[in-house]
Simulated scan of single mutants.
Amino acid sequence: MMDTKLFARGDEGEWVDLGQGNRRRVILHTDELMLVEFAFEKGGIGALHSHPHVQGSYIAEGKFEVTVGERTQVLSTGDSFIAPSGVVHGVKALEAGRLIDSFTPHRADFLK
């Protein structure tokens, strides 16, 4: 536990350019849990995909069209959703915005 980073400041973390004005940064992580911030420009797409991780997402800013499985809803600042393990999901930014995603277990593919 002593080697685990337990706190993060808002200006910490290296942004990774995902193209088309979208980017992400890992905020904190352990083997069991990861927090990641995603920033989208208006019209930005988080393409439909699935992964073995359970994902919980909080809309920190903006408005998104969110698809989880066969269901689609428009969610705004303060709303949230869960993408269960193996379920296809994705987002479209209806305006510029940010998502805070949690993953369990952590996404090793997001680490250097």
Results as ranks from 00 to 15, higher is better:
A83R: 00
T72R: 06
V36R: 02
M1S: 14
K112N: 13
D31G: 15
H106T: 10
F110N: 06
T67N: 08
S102P: 08
A47S: 13
Q73V: 15
M2V: 14
M2F: 13
V16E: 10
V74I: 10
V16C: 01
V66P: 02
G78I: 09
R23E: 04
V91I: 04
T72W: 05
H89F: 03
H53W: 11
R71G: 04
V74C: 05
H89E: 09
G44N: 06
T104I: 10
T104Y: 11
S85C: 11
V16Q: 13
E12I: 12
G97H: 07
L6R: 13
G62I: 00
V16W: 08
H49G: 08
T104R: 00
G19K: 04
K42T: 14
D79T: 05
F103I: 05
L28A: 00
R23M: 04
D109R: 10
T77Q: 13
A83K: 06
M2H: 14
F38Q: 08
Q73C: 12
S85N: 13
R25S: 10
A8Y: 15
G86Y: 01
D17F: 07
F40T: 09
W15N: 06
K112T: 14
T77M: 09
G21C: 11
E65T: 06
Y58R: 07
L33P: 05
S76T: 15
A39W: 02
L99P: 05
V36C: 06
Q20K: 14
V87Q: 02
G43M: 03
M34T: 03
T72N: 02
K112L: 13
H89D: 13
G69F: 11
D17A: 01
R107P: 04
G78R: 05
A93N: 08
V36I: 07
A60R: 02
G86F: 10
T77G: 12
L99Y: 01
E41S: 03
D101W: 00
A39C: 01
L111I: 06
D17V: 03
F110H: 06
F110R: 01
T104S: 13
